[in-house]
């Protein structure tokens, strides 16, 4: 790779622009390209966004648990920046999942909420994300905060399979793999890819922001000393 190409390839702004364009395209595709569904009408378009953020919410949880494990193993705050960025983005995505899911459920089932396995799992994830956020907010020492957050993240990750098992045995009405028109499929795939890229950019941005904040505080502490 030539030096100019490298410069552009690793340019954050370039990727941010790409993510912005892609997410705009995805939204445009959802409303203009995808056909309106027969029974549910326009409300069905929520699904494209819902699936994207739901997947991101789960992926961020896994990322948080893995980076937390790495932190406990290496004791390097760089891993904690990943973990914390994943926590915040994951919480955002999980909240969006619950909100969009609820809207969709109102249109489809005429109820806002039900104790379907996936809904319950999403709620439990959201509750764990929230608890971890509150816990981190109360600890000042960065290493201690990282350690506490890591323990909660790892227990949470161990808990997820049990939650899925328990809720699946409990009851279930969530659509598993609905039949879709080819155009719908394409739009869904596109939306998932675009939103994933968008939230990944957001996560990377937050991570580098956390790292900069950390460095800044270090410098301030040094200057004071």
């Amino acid at each position: 790779m030539s030096q100019t190409a490298e410069k552009y390839f690793f340019n954050d702004y370039l990727w941010h622009a790409v993510a912005a364009v892609m997410v705009t395209t995805a939204i445009a595709a959802i409303f203009l390209l995808a056909p309106t569904e027969e029974t549910m009408g326009i409300a069905q378009r929520i699904v494209y966004i819902h699936v994207s953020v739901a997947w991101m919410g789960l992926a961020a949880f896994v990322l948080m648990a893995i980076t937390s494990g790495m932190y406990l193993f290496r004791r390097d705050l760089a891993w904690d920046h990943w973990s914390r960025a994943a926590l915040e983005i994951g919480w955002l995505c999980c909240s969006l999942t619950l909100a969009t899911g609820s809207l969709w459920a109102h249109a489809a089932w005429n109820i806002w909420w039900t104790w379907d396995p996936r809904l319950t799992t999403a709620f439990v994830l959201w509750a764990m994300y929230s608890a971890a956020l509150v816990l981190r907010g109360g600890v000042e020492d960065p290493h201690r905060r990282a350690r506490m957050g890591a323990i909660v993240a790892i227990i949470g990750m161990l808990d997820v399979p049990l939650v899925i098992m328990a809720t699946r045995w409990f009851r279930g009405i969530h659509p598993k793999s609905p039949q879709m028109e080819p155009t719908m499929r394409v739009v869904l795939l596109m939306s998932v890819v675009c939103f994933t890229l968008f939230f990944t950019m957001l996560l990377l941005l937050r991570r580098s922001q956390l790292r900069s904040a950390d460095m800044l505080e270090d410098l301030q502490a040094q200057a004071e000393a």
């Binding site: 020492d141 960065p142 505080e217 270090d218 301030q220 000393a225």
Partner: peptide, 8 residues
């Protein structure tokens, strides 16, 4: 050893 930012 650091406590928070403070170098102890």
């Amino acid at each position: 050893k650091r406590f928070g930012r403070r170098l102890v």
